[in-house]
Design a protein around this nucleic acid. Sequence first.
DNA 1: CCAAGCGTTCTTTATAGCCGAACATAAATC
DNA 2: GATTTATGTTCGGCTATAAAGAACGCTTGG
Lengths: 277, 277
Amino acid sequence: MRQPNASRATASRDRHAALAPEKRKREPLARGLSLIRWALDTRTEEIGVRAAADALKIAPSTAHSLMSSLVAEGFLRRNANATYGLGHELLMLAHKAADRLPLSRIALPHMRTLVAHCNEAAFLNVYNPDRQEFFAVANVESTQVLRYVVEMNKWKPVYVSAGGWAIMAHLPKADRDEICARTKLKPLTPFSITDPEELEKQLAIVRARGYALSHSQRIPGAVGLSAPLVDPSGHVLGGIGISLPETRFKSDSEGELSRLLLACTSAICRGIRDGNG
Amino acid sequence: MRQPNASRATASRDRHAALAPEKRKREPLARGLSLIRWALDTRTEEIGVRAAADALKIAPSTAHSLMSSLVAEGFLRRNANATYGLGHELLMLAHKAADRLPLSRIALPHMRTLVAHCNEAAFLNVYNPDRQEFFAVANVESTQVLRYVVEMNKWKPVYVSAGGWAIMAHLPKADRDEICARTKLKPLTPFSITDPEELEKQLAIVRARGYALSHSQRIPGAVGLSAPLVDPSGHVLGGIGISLPETRFKSDSEGELSRLLLACTSAICRGIRDGNG
DNA sequence: CCAAGCGTTCTTTATAGCCGAACATAAATC
DNA sequence: GATTTATGTTCGGCTATAAAGAACGCTTGG
């Protein structure tokens, strides 16, 4: 019933062997956390045992056991029709975690005034030194009908796009070199810069004028401006970005937008200093 | 080698036996999640291995192992001075989880107009049927100098306070009875109602007029008004509450505040219906 | 200078996590 | 309505590994 056809069984086994040559490791904590992440990433409302098992490449019975534990802890909940959904403990955890990052609380008001003045989408990027990547945690949309929606809550490399450059330009040289070496500057669009020296030159320009500007680097037809947020000790926390279609980017736009952008980031940095000291 | 000193070994064993009579169970997932919760609840910026071990009543080496796994997963991060802090993965998880609850996104604008009209603190409560408890996930503060700050992100019983009554009144009778039986209506203040029949009478009044009103039930000197939020199928999702000092609660306040409150909740319920359908 | 605190490492032990397979139920298909 | 396929769930056995304790190196501060 399971394997009525020998060849199919072999194929299935091979696929598995190819992906998991080493023995199965036993790590309930890591797997449980991955399960939570997967449950949050999946778009469907109801999540199933076997779907989770497939996603995490574990046995259905293992997934069932993990999910039972997560239900007991309140991170998942059992639906009426014998499926699972997200639990309320996750929501509470989310709010507690959000409280611990005062950055968005400080930044959002200034971002709103920024958008009020230029009417282009602004977003807040947070840099993670461990991953050497960043992601957008908050955005303020413009009232324009044509606008670029930034992909929120997703890791992005720093060596491409204005948002990344604003951050990377203000990292220590050692970190920059490490990023170039580790990522090999894998091109994400045909226009991406892949030469470390050329990138260094561009980043020097970014440092000199205080903000990054990119045309169609990650998204075709989009112009990005971004300036870094640094804490009092000089570490890069992230940045504020503006994204707009090239058709709205006129010859005098850069001066106007960069002025507004730098005013916004310096106001936020002042807020950080006052809030922490 | 095992017991170089009999008396010391015995003392250690006794202390341990007193605190943990049952055998140590092995549950890395549950413990890791509890560790995350503890890390979020603790107010200090730096969290330590031994502090976590004490809080979770586990050996320091066990806590160290758990925390190493959490660092590997990005939920904690290692500080420079050999301590630990919250990791960025938590922050990302928080945003993803918050996106999954459209309730606050729908409710907040209406709460803001509510506060704009009455200038008293408003908050959004979410009910969890599994725990039969609720907690506040969002609040809009007033500009008053004297105001009650609601305790956010903390489980609260439904059988006390206006926020709880608004929810409990609209639960099925079976759930209400279960809550009375399970909690024994343990009084939280001298003014708390402890008689199930008396509580039922009060809840009937709440149902009849559409909102709950409480004087000094949980916080002395505070007046609370709250109305429930129900989804299209009739289940209680939570409620909207207003909290103000008794000194500002005049004879004509109830009519005015309840009118604004019910306008707010019905607007939110309309938003939920439109958003889901 | 030593005492006390910390995070970390190592070793041992037996427990519980993991899997495969079988089971029960429900929905979809013929 | 029978059959097929999907699902969530349970069970038994194997063994990797989580937990604990003791010892270590380190920093701190009296």
